[in-house]
Design a protein around this nucleic acid. Structure first.
Lengths: 145, 145
DNA sequence: TATAAAACCTCTAGTCACTAGAGGTTCAAG
DNA sequence: CTTGAACCTCTAGTGACTAGAGGTTTTATA
């Protein structure tokens, strides 16, 4: 039963800030529930869908993988799992650790890039130091990542 | 003319710390020069290849895209472009800015995740705050990225 | 009412940087 | 000589989208 207040995919896209093809993609991979269709086969979304998609977008923007989001949604749909412990915050803690590790790695990279650019500025020579420093990495330890 | 000192792909892989399929991939996309082959069609790499691959790996580990690395290598091969200015460090500066922006975004995300987990710990309620906070994002401004 | 443009649809394939696996050949060691 | 390791090409998959072809439906305007 489609309600005149239901949203076309374009309207939903604008309200949530998620591209139309991405919404279709989410439905295809089973992340977002399928909406009802008009007689012309167009999707019409309810406010429930809007909240569902907003949840997904928020989690994606926080860097959760689609798989983690599926788990979160499954937990939300399963009242028993919800009451059996804080599985959602375990997922979030795991994710926070990933973010913190990524920040650490990027900070090391930033420092290395800055060092390289400082050397490049001081070099002032004909051969650019960026190239030299990248080339100077041969046979070194491989623990950058 | 293959020299007995030339390296098989497996040896090169170990010395540079780059997987065999990735080495083949780099050759396929034109990033790494093609080596000579044995009569049995096996690749044999010179020390020049080793330096070339080390350069590529270093740049990749620093987060340069393959396209940027292609540009850097092209500049290295073109003496005139090399002498016409510090194009390599312009690429590096551009890249540094990307890294710094990414760190900033991740730091915001980390802070948001921490806030969420603190709320979750204090909540102690039946409904986990991670789910609630993700759900509370509806119709907000979309400037997370 | 007719028309044209906008918005919708499915499907296929591409993006980026790899990665995996099938099915075969060559090399090296015992 | 035999066997296992290392090599080869080729195709397709990974994750999270994104693009485009070719078509249908909806909407707004004259």
């Amino acid at each position: 039963m489609i309600n005149f207040m239901d949203l076309s995919i374009g309207v939903l896209s604008k309200q949530v800030g998620c591209k139309v093809p991405t919404i279709r993609y989410y439905e295809q991979i089973g992340l977002l529930s399928k909406p009802l269709r008009t007689n012309g086969n167009q999707r019409r979304y309810t406010q429930m869908h809007l909240q569902e998609l907003a949840f997904i977008r928020h989690a994606r923007e926080l860097g959760f993988s689609i798989d983690s989001i599926k788990q979160l949604i499954a937990m939300n749909n399963d009242y028993e799992a919800n009451s059996s412990g804080h599985l959602a915050d375990e997922i979030a803690i795991r994710h926070l650790k990933k973010i913190e590790k990524k920040i650490e790695q990027l900070s090391l990279l930033r420092d290395e890039m800055k060092t390289m650019l400082v050397a490049c500025a001081e070099g002032k020579s004909h051969n650019c130091q960026v190239m030299n420093i990248l080339s100077d990495h041969q046979l070194c330890e491989h623990d950058h990542s």
